[in-house]
């Protein structure tokens, strides 16, 4: 996967939901789509907070972010937009707040960002890479 950053004045926004990522294991490297092109704006999810479980760490490589699940020993790749989304999700209190910040950064309609964030969160949660807490769930 190639980087989609534009070195010009503004960042182009390549939808995270339309980009291939990769999933790799030291033993059995494999290619997989990280996110599917499934527009979805889940109101409950948008109001939820996101945190990374203790068994998940991520680091920024030159061209992508690698997420390591220590329980499975598997690596998961996120393209630069996905990596930035994960970073902002960690820093904000709700998915919706993250969407607002990212919409401003990428100069994109918030609806588009919300769809991509929800899709990314669903994929990360399915891989046990994030935990979401709906409001009032604690």
């Amino acid at each position: 996967m190639t980087s989609d950053w534009d070195n010009g004045e503004s960042r182009r926004y390549p939808s995270a939901a339309s980009k291939d990522g990769h999933e790799a294991s030291t033993h059995e490297p494999e290619e997989a789509r990280m996110v599917e092109d499934t527009p979805n704006r889940d109101a409950t999810l948008l109001a939820s907070s996101v945190r990374l479980p203790e068994h998940v760490v991520h680091r920024g490589f030159a061209a992508e972010t690698v997420v390591l699940n220590l329980k499975t020993g598997k690596y998961h790749g996120l393209n630069p937009v996905g990596g930035r989304m994960l970073e902002v999700l960690e820093q904000t209190e709700t998915v919706q707040q993250a969407a607002r910040q990212l919409a401003a950064e990428y100069e994109q309609p918030i609806e588009t960002i919300e769809e991509d964030l929800c899709s990314l969160c669903a994929d990360l949660a399915a891989r046990d890479l994030i935990e979401t807490n709906a409001p009032g769930a604690d």
Partner: peptide, 27 residues
């Protein structure tokens, strides 16, 4: 820009898989 997979799978030792080692390797 080197593929992370190429670096991680090029590691010489694949059987020491403690959390400390895996995080250190990723770092």
């Amino acid at each position: 820009e080197p593929d992370p997979l190429q670096l991680l799978s090029g590691s010489h030792n694949a059987f020491v898989r403690t959390a400390e080692r895996l995080v250190g390797q990723l770092d």
